[in-house]
Design a binder for these strands. Structure first.
Length: 194
DNA sequence: TAGGCCATCTGGTCCT
DNA sequence: AGGACCAGATGGCCTA
């Protein structure tokens, strides 16, 4: 995994002097918006955009415009290095999160669409699926259903398209179009395996 | 062109 | 102390 190597003017400043962190952030952003590269290992695009970041980080006092004294013993070069390493770790973290989303998309039944499910759609659909499966289990045990689903309207959102297992079955039986497009992963055929 | 979705950067906070 | 996690900010891409 390759880390970004960007030389910035403030990197040259090695003495432990007082610096303005906000100015540091600004310089960093400006400097880093120059190039983009790709991850050799994963082929992922690295730093598709590098002009992000904020001068007013949320929920904290980081947005203060006051000049703060840098921690002693850490040079600007060292701080830059740590920031770049931190960025790299954060990128990797987000990539693994996205991988998890992708795996989730693959195991929940949904209508095939031109575009892939968004993250919020994926989570909502997964939640509905879990609720539906829970109801199926309850039904098999002769227990009362845990969850109730609202009636689906005529115009349905992709997320609401499959709300219950019964609905999946009904749709599969009645709608050839649906039959053609609905993807129900084998691993998840809990209903048939019991 | 506005709005939705997304990737990335960033700094604060939490955790080990 | 350092890494993980989190949320705000920003800008790119795409679609209606």
């Amino acid at each position: 995994m390759r880390s970004l190597e960007v030389t910035t003017p403030w990197q040259e400043e090695d003495e432990d002097v007082e610096v303005d962190d906000m100015e540091l952030s600004k310089n960093s952003r400006d400097e880093m918006s120059e190039e983009s590269s790709s991850d050799e290992a994963t082929g992922r695009k690295i730093a598709r955009r590098r002009t992000g970041g904020s001068t007013t980080s949320g929920g904290s006092s980081s947005g203060s415009t006051t000049t703060r004294r840098r921690k002693t013993g850490i040079s600007a070069r060292e701080r830059n290095l740590r920031r770049l390493e931190s960025n790299e770790r954060e990128r990797m973290r987000m990539h693994s999160l996205n991988d998890a989303f992708e795996q989730l998309r693959e195991v929940i039944p949904h209508i095939k669409m031109e575009r892939k499910l968004s993250k919020i759609e994926t989570l909502t659909l997964a939640k509905n699926y879990i609720m539906a499966l829970t109801n199926v289990i309850c039904e098999m045990r002769g227990e009362e259903k845990h969850y109730t689903f609202q009636d689906v309207s005529e115009e349905r959102d992709p997320v609401d398209t499959v709300t219950t297992i019964q609905e999946i079955n009904r749709e599969q039986n009645n709608n050839s179009m649906f039959q053609e497009n609905l993807e129900i992963p084998q691993e998840n055929s809990l209903i048939n395996s019991r």
